[in-house]
Simulated assay, not measured.
Amino acid sequence: MKPPAVSVNRLFVSYHGKDALADISFTLEQGRMIGIVGPNGAGKSTLFKSLLELIPRDKGEIAILGKPLKDMRRQIAYVPQRSEIDLTFPITVSDVVLLGTYPKLGLFHRPKKRHKEWSCHCLEKVGMADFGKRQIGELSGGQQQRVFLARALAQEAQLFCLDEPFVGIDVTSEETIITLLKELRDHNKTVLVVHHDLSKAHAYFDELLLLNVRLVDSGAVEKVFQPGSLKEAYAAQLPFSDWNIGAVSS
């Protein structure tokens, strides 16, 4: 029997004494595409960062593919929000993607011909092969996001975590990215996406985690995408008189 892709038990994270995540527990099976949704300040990005130990947790247990994170880091590809990336750094698109091969190279090993060929293939997958010599900051938002996905593909990971990948990008790039993410899912990879547009939840995801500091609900989109759960998560942000499913986004 395959272990869960992600298992979280009673996770607590706080900033300056205030809960960012409180008593979060869930299990995600492999080969699923999961949307992490909730209002602003719900703890969506914090959940990613705590899963990856980029920030400390107050308490709680986390397992990736049945093992501690320290044993599974090479199996995780993380794409942070573009606002957290230094786009002025003098690095070419090709070299950005090549960085995705580094986790499996080991210390003091340089990429070989096969690694460079693989990174070129990943650029082709996202439709950016002709931009390899460009500096990353010269690209549009959608092009940059496709490059960062190519870097994630180059890692050949089992778990993909993308934080707000569709913010500020063009329709073509969004369609390219969602198609590739679904392909990963169909090859038994697990994909977690922090997402803000609930109107696309049914089209994009198999399951949802609905957060507002606590876990409001989780499971199949049809189960979570119900007025009661959505109202519980978003009511403090939107007046109930104006509340409707199609309008809710973080």
Rank of each mutant, 00 (worst) to 15 (best):
P4T: 13
L11M: 07
Y15K: 12
K18D: 11
L21M: 12
L21K: 08
I24C: 04
T27C: 09
Q30A: 15
I34W: 11
G35S: 07
P39A: 04
G41K: 03
G41Q: 10
S50G: 04
L54M: 13
K59F: 12
E61V: 03
A63W: 07
K67Y: 01
P68I: 00
I76S: 05
Y78D: 12
V79P: 02
R82Q: 14
E84Q: 14
I85H: 00
F89K: 07
I91Y: 00
L98W: 06
G100P: 00
G100W: 01
T101A: 15
P103E: 07
P103D: 06
K112E: 15
H115A: 11
E117R: 12
C122D: 09
E124K: 14
G127W: 02
A129K: 13
Q144E: 06
R146W: 05
R151E: 02
A152M: 03
L153H: 09
A154P: 08
A157K: 06
Q158R: 13
F160D: 02
P165A: 07
F166C: 09
D170V: 00
D170S: 08
E175F: 02
T176C: 13
T179E: 12
L181W: 03
L181T: 04
R185L: 09
H196T: 08
H196V: 02
D197T: 07
S199G: 13
S199V: 13
S199F: 01
A201P: 06
A203Y: 13
F205T: 02
F205Q: 07
D206N: 13
L208T: 00
L209Y: 13
V213S: 08
R214D: 08
V216G: 04
S218A: 13
S218M: 08
G219L: 03
G219R: 03
K223A: 11
V224K: 10
F225E: 09
Q226E: 09
G228C: 03
S229Y: 10
L230F: 11
Y234M: 10
L238G: 00
S241M: 11
S241F: 04
G246D: 15
S250T: 06
